[in-house]
Write a protein that binds this DNA or RNA. Structure first.
Length: 695
DNA sequence: GAGCACTGC
């Protein structure tokens, strides 16, 4: 049983103003309201309300304002309204506010429309992929995902219709937020009248300020008077969360799953009612913990009979995810065992206790091997605080950290590594190229990726023929690929399908490859799923199998019942239809003729080869265990058991992606004829392996 | 015969 001690509650984050030019405001904590009050009263009770004048003053006088706001401060809903009231949307101008997630965009936009008493889609609107609820003439406040704003830049590089752009949740450091920040900094030099508001967590504020503090002279249009100060202002707004008491273990735990289970049991035995939220790393951990807690409940009926244990991760079906929000019988205590999904994406009300393992799964990218891996790694202090905060949303709570205070203070890093530095950069680089950023290596990022990663991305794009010898976008292929919102290798496959006469099929495949999985997630029904898959299995491989599933789905009249019977995920298929429609529109716009190759699967396989030639593998001549080697780097790889080609082992295959566990497994595999490789990418293969491919 | 943190265009 883990032992905890309480060295004191976490202090609210403070900012000092030791740096010249940085402004600091602070005010006493606000009271939280009860009872039924008008919308206007509710607005006035938000902590951000008393900073209204300060915010408007700072935005007027500074090119960039950094707002440090805890959850519940009201910054996201109020600041755009303050700006509108102050005239920033006059003269046809628009105030933009970006979010990393679609759901947040929709939620915030409808809240603001409600507060302003207007119909959503008119004065207040939002844009996310597949959904544009704005009006060209009347929308004054627009919420959008940062990815959508990046796409808008391809039409209007200076984002001229916006007077103020607020980038919310910038501390999350997603790739699109970072790219957006880098580009906005560039735009500022051309548009001194543009104002930026960066909303960030405390820890990041100063590095963000340093990034936007440029000594370079602006190309201002007017005199000195109308040019805002270039050094960013920082303003801190307190949140409205409740105090969360932090407990640490005295000694490091060797098994965080067991420790989490014991901690839940002791909370249940000793603490007053209130739900428990446990942060673990992934499905395996979570299922194990759920099992252990259930066993515990059976062996120790008295203390644990009152527990309702629920798992929560994105792989669960919608219905299973919704269970965590449904009410439970009176007198019972809810325990939700979750991945990072509960850290930012989903908010559970009523949680009073958080158990934090200190770990999460994180993506890491090795530019040398060009492989992305998922690794269990320690979280950052920022994450730990975010997790703890989940216990104090409705009343004071407690957070039990399964690591020592010494570890937290001395060893845990302050912030996580930005996604930018942990990812493959091909999509990101082509997008910058399309925006006319020629010098990628010299681009001013909020966090620079490694030169190796950037060079690798440039190499891949060059090999795809979308960049030329001068690293400029080729015409038309480069521009077409940049236009398609998919991984460039997938986009290249779509371009190739035009010449091969199979664009209808390839667009379907591209849509399916861009979602997680078309199969329902099963536990204990693996055999049934495998049998269902066999009904669609194609000798050519997984891509062609996908086509069979899609065809069956259409023939069923897009029936949910049909999906159920065939272990196909109906929600996923709906998404496929949506993506497919978008891809069709874009394809037609860039001059791709929609055409079906009917049953000519050779055309389909050739198109896949045109995009994914770099992932070609050859079965080892005397391999009895299905070992393949990649042509590019002679790395050992195996066909994943979920593939229809598992145990079939064709001599030559191309994979869509690798997953690495104890072995490197190829997921989504298609068989090819090696002569197509040289057809598709002569430069690539003649240079790499002149003798290994038969002509 | 095995495994999928989380977003997003």
């Amino acid at each position: 049983m883990a032992q905890f001690w309480k060295p004191g509650t976490e202090r609210p984050p403070l900012l000092d103003d030791e740096d010249g030019g940085i402004l600091l405001y602070s005010a006493s904590s606000s009271s939280s309201g009860y009872g039924y009050v008008s919308i206007e009263k509710q607005r006035q009770r938000l902590p951000v309300f008393k900073y209204r004048t300060a915010i408007l003053y700072l935005v007027e006088t500074h090119a960039t304002t950094i707002v440090v706001g805890e959850t519940g401060s009201g910054k996201t809903t109020q600041i755009p309204q303050f700006l509108k009231e102050a005239g920033w949307a006059d003269g046809g101008r628009v105030i933009a506010c970006t979010q990393p997630r679609r759901l947040a965009v929709q939620a915030v936009a409808s809240r603001v429309a409600e507060e302003m008493g207007v119909k959503l889609g008119e004065e207040v609107g939002y844009t996310i992929r597949f959904e544009d609820l704005t009006d060209r003439d009347s929308t004054r406040i627009k919420f959008l995902t940062d990815g959508v704003l990046l796409r808008e830049m391809m039409e209007d590089p200076l984002l001229t219709k916006y007077s103020v752009i607020m980038v919310d949740e910038a501390h999350e450091r997603s790739i699109s937020t970072d790219v957006l920040l880098g580009l906005l900094k560039k735009i500022q030099r051309r548009r001194p009248e543009l104002r930026l508001i960066i909303s960030s967590a405390t820890i990041e504020a100063k590095s963000m300020a340093a990034f936007f503090h440029t000594s370079k002279k602006r190309r201002g249009l007017g005199g000195e008077d109308c040019v805002p100060k270039t050094e960013p202002a920082i303003l801190s707004v307190e949140g409205r969360g409740f105090n969360v008491q932090i407990f640490y273990v005295e000694e490091p735990v060797s098994d965080y799953i067991q420790a989490a289970v014991s901690t839940v049991m002791s909370i249940h035995d000793q603490e007053p009612m209130g739900d428990i939220l446990v942060f673990l790393t992934g499905q395996d951990d979570i299922d194990a913990a759920v099992r252990l807690l259930t066993e515990e409940a059976q062996s120790n009926r008295k203390s644990s009979s009152g527990l309702v244990v629920l798992p929560l991760y994105s792989g669960l079906s919608r219905a299973d995810q919704d269970l965590v929000f449904s009410p439970i019988p009176r007198g019972k205590r809810k325990v939700v065992i979750a991945t990072n999904i509960a850290e930012t994406s989903l908010t559970l009300e009523g949680v009073s206790y958080v158990v934090d393992s200190g770990f999460s799964k994180q993506r890491f990218y090795n530019p040398i091997s060009d492989i992305e891996n998922l690794v269990v790694a320690p979280i950052s202090k920022a994450s730990a605080r975010q997790r703890a905060g989940r216990a104090g949303r409705v009343r004071p709570g407690k957070c039990y950290r399964l690591y020592s205070e010494e570890y937290f203070v001395k060893e845990m890093s302050a912030e996580g590594i930005p996604e930018m530095q942990r990812s493959n950069l091909v999509s990101c680089v082509i997008q910058l190229k399309a925006l006319g950023i020629d010098n990628i290596l010299g681009f001013d990022w909020p966090a620079s990726p490694s030169p190796e990663a950037m060079i690798r991305a440039l190499e891949v794009l060059y090999s795809l023929g979308v960049l030329d010898d001068d690293a400029k976008l080729t015409s038309p292929a480069g521009f077409q690929v940049a236009e398609i919102p998919l991984d460039p290798m997938v986009s290249k496959m779509i371009l190739a399908s035009n010449q091969l006469g199979c664009s209808e099929e390839i667009i379907t495949i591209a849509a399916i490859l861009s979602i997680q999985s078309i199969w329902v997630s099963v536990r204990g029904q693996q055999k049934d799923l495998d049998e269902a898959k066999l009904r669609f299995a194609a000798a050519e491989g997984d891509h062609v199998t996908f086509l069979n599933v899609y065809k069956g789905f259409l023939q069923s009249g897009k029936s949910p019942k049909w999906c159920n019977k065939n272990f196909v995920n109906y929600q996923a298929m709906r998404k496929v239809l949506e993506i497919r429609e978008q891809l069709k529109r874009i394809a037609q716009r860039i001059g791709i003729v929609l055409k079906s190759c009917e049953s000519d699967m050779q055309a389909v396989r050739k198109a896949v080869t045109a995009g994914f030639f770099a992932n070609a593998c050859n079965l080892e001549a005397f391999s009895h265990n299905g070992m393949y080697k990649t042509i590019r780097s002679t790395q050992e790889v195996y066909i994943h058991p979920s593939s229809v080609l598992f145990r079939v082992n064709p001599k030559w295959v191309i994979y869509h992606s690798l997953v690495s566990t104890d072995r490197q497994y190829m997921r989504n595999v298609i068989s090819i004829d090696p002569s197509w490789l040289i057809e598709a990418a002569p430069h690539f293969y003649q240079h790499h392996q002149p003798n290994s491919i038969p002509h």
